[in-house]
Design a protein around this nucleic acid. Structure first.
Lengths: 144, 144
DNA sequence: CCCTTAACCTGAATGATTCAAGTCAACGAG
DNA sequence: CTCGTTGACTTGAATCATTCAGGTTAAGGG
């Protein structure tokens, strides 16, 4: 069991978040953990491969609950459907390929604090900084 | 004429971008310039106040053309419809209020360059960094 | 002044997400 | 171990932003 990837198994994760442990939710959480920034469609088909059936609504509801509980993080690059990742709690950002839509994690640019502090907060109570780098991924650069 | 706000009038802006000067497009561009991060709906009603009528499609097409031409910038915070601003060409970012959706400009945190360079570009050819700060705006902080 | 084609129109379609309302089953109390 | 509560799931329909299609109008270069 690689606890470097997931500090606790999915069932324990659900339980400690106050959520019920069901086959569907286990499969949904596992899919997000195993997958690479999957969207709702992709999660749904993964779960269907494993269990035979789930409704889209179950997946939407579960992902919403997981996001609220801090088990997964929802990312939504402009013009793309929402995608989910299990790497949470660290202040990391994303590279998005304009061509193929691929999404890659990037560590925070300059340590930790600067990413949470705008030059002038204009009186806002800021709690999150969302950074997206847009460009062309290595694969798409070759195919040109 | 305050040329600090708009280096050239809207008609000239359209012309120099290779676009035709029509009443509708002038009104659309003026609305974006006068407004504060308006969405398509808001732009449309502004234009209707001024001209009596425009179709949504005309507004969508125009805003798309303006964006491509670099006359306006399209911003799309997660969970919100697209919004448009006329402040372009500088590397500025945004504060978004989680409660009322208000959007406020922020200058680039650390000068210019760092915002375009992720810690590790993972082989991507990065051309833009999109930074959004999430929080509660001054007005909403008071109403609590 | 005329022609090309960008701009505009009406109307319909798409895709992601959410709402509604009823059924089922996880799991804590007894 | 059984029961009841209520969270989870299901089907089916609705909503919202945006785009597509196909036809008409008019800006502005020749």
């Amino acid at each position: 069991m690689k606890d470097t990837e997931h500090p606790q198994d999915s069932a324990a994760g659900l339980r400690s978040a106050g959520l019920r442990v069901t086959a569907a939710r286990l499969a949904i959480l596992d899919s997000v953990r195993a997958g690479d920034h999957l969207d709702v469609d992709a999660v749904t088909s993964q779960v269907r491969d494993r269990l035979g059936h789930v409704s889209f609504q179950a997946v939407y509801e579960a992902l919403h609950a997981f996001t609220a509980a801090g088990l997964v993080r929802r990312i939504e690059p402009a013009g793309s459907p929402a995608r989910f990742e299990s790497r949470v709690g660290d202040n990391h950002h994303h590279l998005v390929c304009r061509q193929c839509g691929r999404l890659t994690d990037v560590d925070c640019t300059i340590g930790e604090a600067p990413c949470l502090e705008p030059a002038d907060d204009a009186g806002y109570l800021v709690d999150e900084a969302d950074v997206t780098f847009w460009g062309i991924c290595p694969d798409c650069r070759q195919d040109s």
